[in-house]
Protein backbone atom coordinates (compact mmCIF):
# COMPACT_ATOMS: atom_id res chain seq x y z
CA UNK A 1 0.00 0.00 0.00
CA UNK A 2 1.46 3.30 -1.14
CA UNK A 3 -0.49 6.40 -0.30
CA UNK A 4 0.13 10.12 -0.52
CA UNK A 5 -0.70 10.95 3.07
CA UNK A 6 0.95 12.65 6.00
CA UNK A 7 -0.29 11.21 9.27
CA UNK A 8 -2.75 8.31 8.77
CA UNK A 9 -4.65 9.39 11.88
CA UNK A 10 -5.71 12.70 10.40
CA UNK A 11 -6.30 11.90 6.73
CA UNK A 12 -9.98 12.73 6.96
CA UNK A 13 -9.38 16.09 8.59
CA UNK A 14 -6.71 17.01 6.08
CA UNK A 15 -8.97 15.90 3.25
CA UNK A 16 -11.78 18.11 4.52
CA UNK A 17 -9.36 20.96 4.93
CA UNK A 18 -8.23 20.60 1.32
CA UNK A 19 -11.79 20.23 0.09
CA UNK A 20 -12.97 23.41 1.78
CA UNK A 21 -9.98 25.32 0.49
CA UNK A 22 -10.56 24.07 -3.03
CA UNK A 23 -14.18 25.19 -3.18
CA UNK A 24 -14.59 28.16 -0.85
CA UNK A 25 -17.35 29.63 -2.99
CA UNK A 26 -19.44 26.48 -2.87
CA UNK A 27 -19.02 24.84 0.51
CA UNK A 28 -18.15 25.66 4.09
CA UNK A 29 -17.79 24.01 7.45
CA UNK A 30 -20.53 24.51 10.02
CA UNK A 31 -19.03 26.93 12.49
CA UNK A 32 -17.42 25.20 15.41
CA UNK A 33 -17.76 21.80 13.81
CA UNK A 34 -15.02 19.58 12.48
CA UNK A 35 -17.05 17.25 10.34
CA UNK A 36 -20.27 18.94 9.29
CA UNK A 37 -20.14 20.65 5.90
CA UNK A 38 -22.81 22.59 4.10
CA UNK A 39 -23.37 23.99 0.64
CA UNK A 40 -23.30 27.76 0.70
CA UNK A 41 -26.34 28.07 -1.51
CA UNK A 42 -28.29 26.05 1.05
CA UNK A 43 -28.01 28.79 3.60
CA UNK A 44 -30.14 31.32 1.78
CA UNK A 45 -33.24 30.81 3.86
CA UNK A 46 -35.58 30.13 0.98
CA UNK A 47 -37.57 27.71 3.06
CA UNK A 48 -36.51 24.60 1.24
CA UNK A 49 -36.56 21.20 2.86
CA UNK A 50 -33.04 20.39 4.03
CA UNK A 51 -31.26 17.31 2.75
CA UNK A 52 -28.50 15.85 4.91
CA UNK A 53 -26.34 12.97 3.75
CA UNK A 54 -23.29 11.30 5.17
CA UNK A 55 -21.51 8.18 6.15
CA UNK A 56 -17.98 6.99 6.51
CA UNK A 57 -15.38 8.57 4.28
CA UNK A 58 -13.29 6.65 1.75
CA UNK A 59 -16.10 6.78 -0.82
CA UNK A 60 -15.15 10.11 -2.38
CA UNK A 61 -16.65 11.89 -4.27
CA UNK A 62 -19.47 10.48 -2.09
CA UNK A 63 -20.68 11.86 0.15
CA UNK A 64 -19.02 15.22 0.73
CA UNK A 65 -18.81 15.98 -2.99
CA UNK A 66 -22.57 15.88 -3.36
CA UNK A 67 -23.60 18.98 -1.49
CA UNK A 68 -24.65 21.86 -3.67
CA UNK A 69 -27.45 23.21 -5.79
CA UNK A 70 -29.89 20.46 -6.73
CA UNK A 71 -28.26 17.88 -4.45
CA UNK A 72 -27.84 17.67 -0.68
CA UNK A 73 -27.49 20.70 1.57
CA UNK A 74 -25.31 19.26 4.28
CA UNK A 75 -23.06 16.31 4.93
CA UNK A 76 -21.60 14.66 8.01
CA UNK A 77 -18.22 13.13 7.27
CA UNK A 78 -17.22 10.06 9.24
CA UNK A 79 -13.84 8.47 9.58
CA UNK A 80 -12.86 6.03 6.87
CA UNK A 81 -15.59 3.40 6.58
CA UNK A 82 -17.09 4.52 9.90
CA UNK A 83 -20.41 6.27 10.23
CA UNK A 84 -20.12 9.80 11.58
CA UNK A 85 -21.23 10.20 15.18
CA UNK A 86 -24.49 12.01 15.94
CA UNK A 87 -22.91 15.38 16.65
CA UNK A 88 -21.85 16.45 13.13
CA UNK A 89 -25.13 15.09 11.79
CA UNK A 90 -27.04 17.28 14.20
CA UNK A 91 -24.79 20.22 13.37
CA UNK A 92 -25.47 19.81 9.66
CA UNK A 93 -29.18 19.42 10.39
CA UNK A 94 -29.33 22.64 12.36
CA UNK A 95 -27.35 24.51 9.73
CA UNK A 96 -29.57 23.54 6.80
CA UNK A 97 -32.87 23.60 8.63
CA UNK A 98 -35.12 26.33 7.28
CA UNK A 99 -38.13 25.44 9.31
CA UNK A 100 -39.69 23.03 6.87
CA UNK A 101 -38.06 19.80 7.88
CA UNK A 102 -34.95 17.87 7.01
CA UNK A 103 -34.48 14.57 5.20
CA UNK A 104 -31.62 12.23 6.05
CA UNK A 105 -30.36 9.86 3.38
CA UNK A 106 -27.87 7.17 4.29
CA UNK A 107 -26.97 3.59 3.59
CA UNK A 108 -28.31 0.60 5.45
CA UNK A 109 -25.46 -0.07 7.86
CA UNK A 110 -25.83 -0.66 11.60
CA UNK A 111 -23.48 2.21 12.38
CA UNK A 112 -25.27 4.72 10.17
CA UNK A 113 -28.66 3.65 11.43
CA UNK A 114 -27.65 4.10 15.05
CA UNK A 115 -25.81 7.38 14.60
CA UNK A 116 -28.32 9.00 12.26
CA UNK A 117 -31.06 7.63 14.49
CA UNK A 118 -29.57 9.27 17.57
CA UNK A 119 -29.04 12.46 15.58
CA UNK A 120 -32.64 12.61 14.44
CA UNK A 121 -33.82 12.13 18.04
CA UNK A 122 -31.55 14.95 19.15
CA UNK A 123 -32.63 17.21 16.29
CA UNK A 124 -36.23 16.64 17.24
CA UNK A 125 -35.86 16.88 21.02
CA UNK A 126 -33.25 19.59 21.35
CA UNK A 127 -33.83 21.67 18.26
CA UNK A 128 -37.43 20.92 17.37
CA UNK A 129 -36.54 19.97 13.81
CA UNK A 130 -38.70 17.43 12.05
CA UNK A 131 -36.47 14.81 10.48
CA UNK A 132 -37.42 12.03 8.08
CA UNK A 133 -34.90 9.29 7.30
CA UNK A 134 -34.50 7.36 4.09
CA UNK A 135 -32.30 4.32 4.29
CA UNK A 136 -30.80 3.18 1.02
CA UNK A 137 -30.81 -0.57 0.34
CA UNK A 138 -29.91 -0.94 -3.33
CA UNK A 139 -27.37 -3.78 -3.23
CA UNK A 140 -29.28 -6.82 -4.47
CA UNK A 141 -26.25 -9.02 -3.83
CA UNK A 142 -26.39 -8.44 -0.12
CA UNK A 143 -29.62 -10.28 0.70
CA UNK A 144 -32.39 -12.10 -1.10
CA UNK A 145 -35.54 -10.24 -2.01
CA UNK A 146 -37.53 -11.58 0.90
CA UNK A 147 -34.97 -10.03 3.26
CA UNK A 148 -34.80 -6.73 1.41
CA UNK A 149 -34.63 -4.79 4.67
CA UNK A 150 -31.16 -6.27 5.24
CA UNK A 151 -29.66 -5.02 2.00
CA UNK A 152 -26.69 -2.69 2.03
CA UNK A 153 -26.68 0.71 0.42
CA UNK A 154 -24.09 1.22 -2.31
CA UNK A 155 -23.80 3.42 -5.40
CA UNK A 156 -27.57 3.75 -5.85
CA UNK A 157 -27.53 6.32 -3.08
CA UNK A 158 -26.32 8.78 -5.72
CA UNK A 159 -29.65 8.53 -7.55
CA UNK A 160 -31.66 8.70 -4.34
CA UNK A 161 -29.78 11.84 -3.32
CA UNK A 162 -30.23 13.34 -6.79
CA UNK A 163 -33.99 12.87 -6.62
CA UNK A 164 -34.27 14.27 -3.09
CA UNK A 165 -32.03 17.21 -3.91
CA UNK A 166 -33.89 18.11 -7.08
CA UNK A 167 -37.29 17.84 -5.41
CA UNK A 168 -36.28 20.01 -2.49
CA UNK A 169 -34.53 22.50 -4.80
CA UNK A 170 -37.71 23.17 -6.71
CA UNK A 171 -39.59 23.78 -3.48
CA UNK A 172 -41.45 20.55 -2.81
CA UNK A 173 -42.56 20.25 0.79
CA UNK A 174 -41.35 17.64 3.24
CA UNK A 175 -43.98 15.02 2.56
CA UNK A 176 -43.54 15.36 -1.18
CA UNK A 177 -39.73 15.17 -0.95
CA UNK A 178 -40.08 12.09 1.22
CA UNK A 179 -42.58 10.49 -1.14
CA UNK A 180 -40.35 11.02 -4.16
CA UNK A 181 -37.18 9.99 -2.37
CA UNK A 182 -38.85 6.82 -1.16
CA UNK A 183 -40.02 6.12 -4.66
CA UNK A 184 -36.47 6.51 -5.96
CA UNK A 185 -35.22 4.29 -3.19
CA UNK A 186 -37.78 1.60 -4.04
CA UNK A 187 -36.88 1.81 -7.74
CA UNK A 188 -33.11 1.54 -7.51
CA UNK A 189 -31.08 -1.65 -7.65
CA UNK A 190 -27.33 -2.21 -7.84
CA UNK A 191 -24.92 -5.07 -8.05
CA UNK A 192 -21.15 -4.95 -7.94
CA UNK A 193 -17.97 -6.89 -8.53
CA UNK A 194 -14.63 -6.54 -6.78
CA UNK A 195 -11.25 -7.25 -8.36
CA UNK A 196 -8.58 -5.77 -6.11
CA UNK A 197 -8.67 -4.60 -2.51
CA UNK A 198 -8.19 -1.23 -0.88
CA UNK A 199 -6.26 -0.60 2.31
CA UNK A 200 -7.06 1.58 5.27
CA UNK A 201 -4.22 4.11 5.71
CA UNK A 202 -3.96 3.16 9.35
CA UNK A 203 -3.52 -0.57 8.96
CA UNK A 204 -2.10 -0.73 5.44
CA UNK A 205 -3.73 -4.15 5.16
CA UNK A 206 -5.65 -5.14 2.04
CA UNK A 207 -9.38 -5.17 2.73
CA UNK A 208 -9.77 -8.65 1.28
CA UNK A 209 -7.71 -11.24 -0.51
CA UNK A 210 -8.40 -12.54 -3.99
CA UNK A 211 -6.26 -14.73 -6.19
CA UNK A 212 -4.28 -13.33 -9.15
CA UNK A 213 -7.13 -14.16 -11.46
CA UNK A 214 -10.14 -14.00 -9.23
CA UNK A 215 -13.09 -11.68 -8.89
CA UNK A 216 -15.75 -11.49 -6.21
CA UNK A 217 -19.37 -10.87 -7.07
CA UNK A 218 -21.39 -8.80 -4.63
CA UNK A 219 -18.41 -7.58 -2.66
CA UNK A 220 -19.34 -4.83 -0.20
CA UNK A 221 -18.31 -1.23 -0.61
CA UNK A 222 -16.02 -1.52 2.38
CA UNK A 223 -14.49 -4.83 1.40
CA UNK A 224 -17.12 -6.86 3.22
CA UNK A 225 -17.31 -10.38 1.81
CA UNK A 226 -19.47 -10.88 -1.28
CA UNK A 227 -21.63 -13.71 -2.48
CA UNK A 228 -19.35 -15.57 -4.83
CA UNK A 229 -15.69 -15.79 -5.72
CA UNK A 230 -14.66 -17.10 -9.08
CA UNK A 231 -12.23 -16.70 -11.95
CA UNK A 232 -12.18 -13.27 -13.55
CA UNK A 233 -14.32 -13.37 -16.67
CA UNK A 234 -14.60 -11.17 -19.71
CA UNK A 235 -16.30 -7.85 -19.14
CA UNK A 236 -19.44 -8.85 -21.01
CA UNK A 237 -19.88 -11.98 -18.93
CA UNK A 238 -19.31 -10.13 -15.68
CA UNK A 239 -21.78 -7.50 -16.81
CA UNK A 240 -24.35 -10.11 -17.72
CA UNK A 241 -24.11 -11.59 -14.27
CA UNK A 242 -24.70 -8.21 -12.65
CA UNK A 243 -27.49 -7.21 -15.01
CA UNK A 244 -29.27 -10.56 -14.74
CA UNK A 245 -29.33 -10.41 -10.97
CA UNK A 246 -30.69 -6.86 -11.08
CA UNK A 247 -33.33 -7.69 -13.68
CA UNK A 248 -34.40 -10.86 -11.90
CA UNK A 249 -34.87 -8.92 -8.72
CA UNK A 250 -36.96 -6.09 -10.13
CA UNK A 251 -39.95 -5.71 -12.36
CA UNK A 252 -38.47 -3.92 -15.36
CA UNK A 253 -40.24 -4.71 -18.59
CA UNK A 254 -40.21 -3.71 -22.25
CA UNK A 255 -41.04 -0.05 -22.65
CA UNK A 256 -39.77 0.97 -19.21
CA UNK A 257 -37.26 3.78 -18.76
CA UNK A 258 -34.23 3.60 -16.51
CA UNK A 259 -31.40 5.77 -15.31
CA UNK A 260 -28.11 3.85 -15.42
CA UNK A 261 -24.99 4.29 -13.34
CA UNK A 262 -21.85 2.29 -14.03
CA UNK A 263 -19.77 3.17 -11.01
CA UNK A 264 -16.04 2.62 -10.57
CA UNK A 265 -14.79 1.56 -7.16
CA UNK A 266 -11.54 3.47 -7.40
CA UNK A 267 -8.79 2.03 -9.55
CA UNK A 268 -10.88 0.64 -12.37
CA UNK A 269 -10.36 2.79 -15.44
CA UNK A 270 -13.04 4.76 -17.21
CA UNK A 271 -12.18 2.69 -20.28
CA UNK A 272 -13.29 -0.45 -18.48
CA UNK A 273 -16.40 1.29 -17.17
CA UNK A 274 -17.39 2.23 -20.71
CA UNK A 275 -16.79 -1.33 -21.88
CA UNK A 276 -19.13 -2.42 -19.09
CA UNK A 277 -21.66 0.27 -19.97
CA UNK A 278 -21.61 -0.86 -23.59
CA UNK A 279 -22.81 -4.27 -22.50
CA UNK A 280 -25.42 -2.86 -20.13
CA UNK A 281 -26.84 -0.91 -23.05
CA UNK A 282 -26.85 -3.99 -25.28
CA UNK A 283 -28.68 -6.04 -22.69
CA UNK A 284 -31.25 -3.36 -21.95
CA UNK A 285 -31.90 -2.64 -25.58
CA UNK A 286 -32.44 -6.37 -26.22
CA UNK A 287 -35.15 -6.17 -23.61
CA UNK A 288 -36.49 -2.91 -25.05
CA UNK A 289 -35.79 -1.09 -21.83
CA UNK A 290 -34.96 2.50 -22.64
CA UNK A 291 -32.01 4.30 -21.07
CA UNK A 292 -33.18 7.73 -20.05
CA UNK A 293 -29.89 9.06 -18.73
CA UNK A 294 -26.47 7.53 -18.06
CA UNK A 295 -23.70 8.10 -15.57
CA UNK A 296 -20.34 6.40 -16.01
CA UNK A 297 -17.47 7.12 -13.64
CA UNK A 298 -16.33 7.11 -10.04
CA UNK A 299 -19.46 8.21 -8.19
CA UNK A 300 -18.99 6.18 -5.03
CA UNK A 301 -15.61 4.59 -4.49
CA UNK A 302 -14.04 2.32 -1.93
CA UNK A 303 -10.72 4.14 -1.87
CA UNK A 304 -8.48 2.45 -4.45
CA UNK A 305 -10.51 -0.73 -4.74
CA UNK A 306 -10.70 -2.31 -8.20
CA UNK A 307 -14.08 -3.26 -9.59
CA UNK A 308 -17.37 -1.61 -10.39
CA UNK A 309 -21.09 -1.72 -9.85
CA UNK A 310 -24.06 -1.34 -12.11
CA UNK A 311 -27.13 0.53 -10.89
CA UNK A 312 -30.51 0.76 -12.59
CA UNK A 313 -33.29 2.99 -11.42
CA UNK A 314 -36.68 2.71 -13.05
CA UNK A 315 -37.90 6.21 -13.83
CA UNK A 316 -41.37 7.46 -14.64
CA UNK A 317 -42.14 11.01 -15.72
CA UNK A 318 -41.73 12.54 -12.29
CA UNK A 319 -38.46 10.77 -11.54
CA UNK A 320 -37.13 11.64 -15.00
CA UNK A 321 -37.67 15.32 -14.33
CA UNK A 322 -35.74 15.07 -11.08
CA UNK A 323 -32.88 13.06 -12.56
CA UNK A 324 -32.59 15.57 -15.39
CA UNK A 325 -32.66 18.63 -13.14
CA UNK A 326 -29.46 20.69 -13.04
CA UNK A 327 -27.00 20.13 -10.23
CA UNK A 328 -23.92 22.01 -9.17
CA UNK A 329 -21.68 20.50 -6.53
CA UNK A 330 -17.92 20.71 -6.08
CA UNK A 331 -17.37 17.17 -7.33
CA UNK A 332 -20.30 16.72 -9.67
CA UNK A 333 -22.28 19.01 -11.91
CA UNK A 334 -24.81 18.45 -14.63
CA UNK A 335 -26.90 20.58 -16.91
CA UNK A 336 -30.52 19.86 -17.61
Amino acid sequence: MKKLVNNPDVVVDEMIDGYLKAFPKLVEKVEGSGRALVAKQSLHGNGKVGIVIGGGSGHEPAFMGYIGRGMADGVAVGNIFASPPPQPIVEATEAVNQGNGVVYIYGNYAGDIMNFGMASDLADMEHDIKVESIIVRDDVASAPKREKEKRRGIAGEFFVTKVAGAASARGDDLSEVVRLTNKANESVRSMGVGLTPCALPQTGKPSFVLGENEMEIGLGHHGEPGVEKGPLQQADDVCDRLIDDILNDGDLKAGDDVAVLVNGLGSTTQMELFIMFRRVEQRLSEKQINIHRSYVGNYSTSMEMGGCSVTLMKVDEELKALIDAPAECPLYAQYE
Partner: peptide, 12 residues
Protein backbone atom coordinates in the same frame (compact mmCIF):
# COMPACT_ATOMS: atom_id res chain seq x y z
CA UNK B 1 -17.04 7.26 22.73
CA UNK B 2 -20.19 8.38 20.96
CA UNK B 3 -18.51 11.42 19.48
CA UNK B 4 -15.13 9.92 18.62
CA UNK B 5 -15.78 6.34 17.58
CA UNK B 6 -18.63 6.58 15.12
CA UNK B 7 -19.45 3.43 13.16
CA UNK B 8 -21.48 0.75 14.91
CA UNK B 9 -19.31 0.37 17.98
CA UNK B 10 -19.42 4.06 18.95
CA UNK B 11 -23.13 4.26 19.70
CA UNK B 12 -23.12 0.78 21.24
Amino acid sequence: LISKVGGASGPL
